[in-house]
Simulated assay, not measured.
Amino acid sequence: MYRARDHVENEAWLAEIQQAADRLELETAARSRAADLFLSTVSDADDPEDRSKRAVAAASLYAGSLIEGDQRSQQVVADAMDVSRLTIQQRWKSILKEAGLQPPSW
């Protein structure tokens, strides 16, 4: 769960997630899920240079699209968020676990 303050403090990151979702033509449910996942884990990603936040945002976008059945490849999401595919690969499962969801075993 996240606080309303987290939403306000991360407006720029949420906007970036939405812009990437626009480029990926994601459905509303996937966008909403990505924002929720990001806000739920962002407090664990305090980084003065915002590198961790970018990684969490990208992995949240990938995981949100996966959960909502509007999946895009890790590479396509990575390109849209300007991170490496490895960044998403290393983080998306832990984001799902933190949200109380079971990552797929494939």
Score class of each variant (00 low, 15 high):
102 Q>E: 05
7 H>P: 00
79 D>N: 10
40 S>D: 08
3 R>H: 13
75 Q>E: 06
2 Y>H: 15
104 P>W: 12
55 A>Q: 15
29 A>G: 10
78 A>E: 00
33 R>Q: 10
82 D>N: 12
51 R>N: 12
45 A>C: 10
6 D>N: 06
85 R>T: 09
16 E>C: 09
56 V>P: 02
7 H>R: 14
77 V>W: 00
63 A>V: 09
85 R>A: 02
81 M>R: 03
65 S>K: 07
104 P>T: 15
65 S>L: 04
86 L>P: 00
25 E>H: 13
50 D>G: 06
22 D>A: 08
75 Q>A: 09
49 E>I: 05
46 D>R: 15
23 R>E: 14
5 R>N: 11
59 A>G: 08
41 T>W: 05
31 R>G: 08
54 R>E: 08
71 Q>H: 08
94 S>Y: 14
57 A>Y: 00
15 A>D: 10
41 T>L: 06
24 L>T: 05
55 A>P: 03
84 S>M: 04
6 D>Q: 07
106 W>D: 13
80 A>V: 06
86 L>R: 14
4 A>T: 07
72 R>I: 05
37 L>F: 12
87 T>V: 10
14 L>F: 02
71 Q>K: 08
55 A>T: 13
92 W>Y: 15
79 D>K: 08
31 R>Q: 13
39 L>P: 04
55 A>W: 04
3 R>G: 07
29 A>C: 08
16 E>Y: 03
10 N>G: 02
87 T>W: 00
52 S>C: 12
67 I>W: 03
97 K>Q: 14
21 A>G: 12
74 Q>C: 02
97 K>P: 01
11 E>F: 01
105 S>P: 04
100 G>C: 10
27 E>I: 06
13 W>T: 15
101 L>K: 09
66 L>D: 09
34 A>G: 07
52 S>D: 12
17 I>K: 05
61 L>C: 04
99 A>Y: 00
49 E>D: 10
105 S>L: 12
10 N>E: 06
71 Q>F: 03
87 T>C: 03
7 H>V: 15
37 L>Q: 07
5 R>M: 12
61 L>Q: 04
30 A>D: 10
73 S>D: 04
91 R>F: 06
56 V>A: 14
31 R>V: 11
3 R>S: 15
67 I>Y: 03
6 D>H: 08
39 L>I: 06
29 A>W: 08
38 F>Q: 05
103 P>M: 15
31 R>H: 05
38 F>N: 07
62 Y>R: 13
104 P>E: 15
64 G>W: 02
58 A>I: 01
41 T>D: 11
27 E>R: 12
86 L>G: 13
95 I>Y: 01
4 A>G: 10
59 A>T: 03
85 R>N: 08
7 H>F: 14
101 L>A: 11
5 R>Q: 14
85 R>M: 02
106 W>S: 11
84 S>W: 01
44 D>E: 15
19 Q>V: 07
8 V>C: 01
58 A>D: 02
37 L>G: 08
36 D>W: 06
89 Q>N: 13
77 V>I: 02
97 K>F: 02
101 L>W: 02
12 A>L: 07
74 Q>W: 02
54 R>N: 04
37 L>Y: 10
82 D>T: 13
41 T>A: 14
96 L>Q: 13
74 Q>E: 03
7 H>D: 06
104 P>Q: 14
93 K>I: 05
89 Q>E: 10
91 R>T: 03
58 A>L: 02
27 E>G: 13
67 I>D: 06
35 A>I: 12
